[in-house]
């Protein structure tokens, strides 16, 4: 396990700050092809058939196993299947190890398919995007799960790839309570080549896009829990010692690239005041991931933790 390509400190800091890592076209084409073959064909639209039935029939036929929640991820998929081969790719194993540590646990998986307009017209239903939501329930943990989104084929903008909001993962909200927000500055839509993976912090706000193309769009998601430590699981040899705090506010020019620079970069949707709390919460997450209870960036935590003598 020691020769896994672990995430660098910079990649880990980017995940801590933004809640995602995207790897474009990293799954070999033969695995993508095998996965789509295992999923099987999707029936053409049938007049009067509700989408729920179309979806149910597709899930029943697809070659994805039913897996009990809570089993070891290593035992979730049979050897030789596309999903097992995908999870065993060194890049994937290394990223999983870096993010959730040793002996990760399978939570659940799902086959997400968005259908073209003809299916909705045949069913008499409306073709709309999925509301913004945060998966599962309110999650007060500092620890986190990851969700891997796998795009086995090319996704165009018209096909309605996953929409997500970078940096939203540290907000403690209750699932679809955020559905009122249709659009948020800085949101991203997955437009990608086949074999692309999106690793998400479990708190990321997201939703499926509306498919207005002529093709179905397939995405497979698997949620993974930590079972042991998430502390210092990434490539800590790339973590540079922090000699001193950076100068703040009064700067004569741009500061050099660093973990601090990554952690302290705000998102376009940040509110003026809560943006600073977002940065503070990133510092707390970085303390957790590095096992360094005294870490700070740009003095946000130190200022609050410095007590005057009584």
């Amino acid at each position: 396990m020691n020769d896994l390509p672990l995430l660098s400190a910079e990649a880990m800091a980017s995940f801590a700050a933004r809640g995602f890592l995207r790897f474009d076209g990293v799954v070999p084409e033969d695995i993508n092809r095998q996965f789509l073959e295992e999923m099987g064909d999707i029936d053409p639209p049938r007049p009067g058939q509700k989408m729920r039935r179309t979806y149910g029939e597709m899930l029943a036929r697809a070659g994805v196993p039913q897996v009990p929640a809570g089993v070891a991820l290593a035992q979730a998929y049979p050897e030789g299947t596309a999903l097992k081969r995908l999870l065993d790719l060194p890049l994937v194993s290394g990223a999983i190890r870096s993010l959730v540590g040793e002996d990760p646990v399978f939570d659940h998986h799902f086959l997400h398919v968005t259908f073209p307009p003809a299916y909705h017209e045949a069913s008499g239903g409306e073709n709309v995007s999925q509301h913004y939501h945060q998966d599962s329930t309110i999650d007060p943990r500092r620890a986190f799960d990851i969700q891997i989104m796998y795009y086995p084929h090319t996704v165009t903008r018209e096909m309605g790839g996953t929409r997500f909001l970078p940096g939203s993962h540290l907000r403690k909200v209750s699932e679809a309570a955020i559905a009122r927000y249709q659009n948020i500055r800085g949101q991203q839509h997955m437009v990608c080549e086949g074999g692309t993976l999106l690793f998400l912090h479990s708190g990321i706000w997201h939703g499926g896009g509306v498919n207005v193309s002529d093709h179905t769009r397939t995405m497979f998601k698997v949620r993974i829990n930590p079972s042991r430590s998430q502390v210092r699981q990434f490539d800590v040899s790339t973590l540079k010692p922090q000699d001193a705090q950076r100068p703040i506010f009064y700067l004569k020019g741009p500061l050099p690239p660093s973990v601090e620079q990554i952690l302290m970069t705000p998102e376009p949707w940040h509110e003026n005041d809560t943006s600073r709390l977002e940065l503070l919460n990133r510092v707390k997450l970085w303390r957790y991931l590095t096992g360094d209870p005294d870490y700070d960036a740009d003095y946000w935590a130190t200022r609050l933790e410095t007590l005057a003598d009584a």
Binding site: S129, R163, Y181, R185, H189, G207, W269
Partner: peptide, 17 residues
Amino acid sequence: VGWSLWDGTGETRRMAG
């Protein structure tokens, strides 16, 4: 930083994303 629109006239159908 964020916005939503619901159109009761039915002329437009706005949605997430």
